[in-house]
């Protein structure tokens, strides 16, 4: 990454791509979360939702792709705040890409922080949007 002093409003965050949303990972995730909601593993049940034969990725995993982009850009302990809204569901087999852009820089609590617009795209459409506050130089 650039040095923190070199980062400013308008800078793009290098994208992070999940080329194939894996249904096996959804099943593992459901177990970790103790999440009984069948939309993540019951393909037949999702026919009633207009998604026959498909399963829906967990929201935290969709956010996780955005977080992975931030961690790769600014270091493993950089995240200070995530504020996100979820749009359309991400499904098994989808190819999604996380992106972001710095909107402002401020010195807070002794560290330089970037506020960034962030998003997750599928086929050019935002499926998650939000704001992240990231500490620069927090490796």
């Amino acid at each position: 990454m650039n040095e923190p002093a070199d980062i400013g409003p308008g800078d793009e965050i290098p994208t992070w791509t999940m080329p194939f949303v894996d249904p096996a990972r959804m099943r593992t995730m459901a177990a970790i979360l103790r999440d009984p909601y069948p939309v993540h593993w019951d393909r037949d049940g999702n026919a009633a939702l207009g998604l026959p034969g498909r399963v829906i990725n967990q929201g935290p995993l969709n956010l996780g792709y955005i977080v992975n982009m931030l961690l790769a850009w600014a270091g493993p302990s950089c995240v200070r705040r995530l504020t996100v809204s979820f749009g359309r569901p991400v499904l098994d087999g989808d190819h999604v890409t996380a992106g972001g852009r710095v909107t402002s820089i401020a010195d807070i609590d002794g560290e330089r922080r970037a506020t960034c617009d962030v998003w997750l795209d599928r086929d050019g459409e935002h499926v998650v949007t939000g704001t992240a506050v990231v500490a620069l130089g927090a490796r």
């Binding site: 990972r25 593992t28 996780g64 792709y65 992975n68 961690l71 493993p76 302990s77 995240v79």
Partner: peptide, 16 residues
Amino acid sequence: DCTGREPLPDRLVHPI
């Protein structure tokens, strides 16, 4: 691993 990345260093947990 479910997020598609390697574990973080220093026992840090993934933010999600």
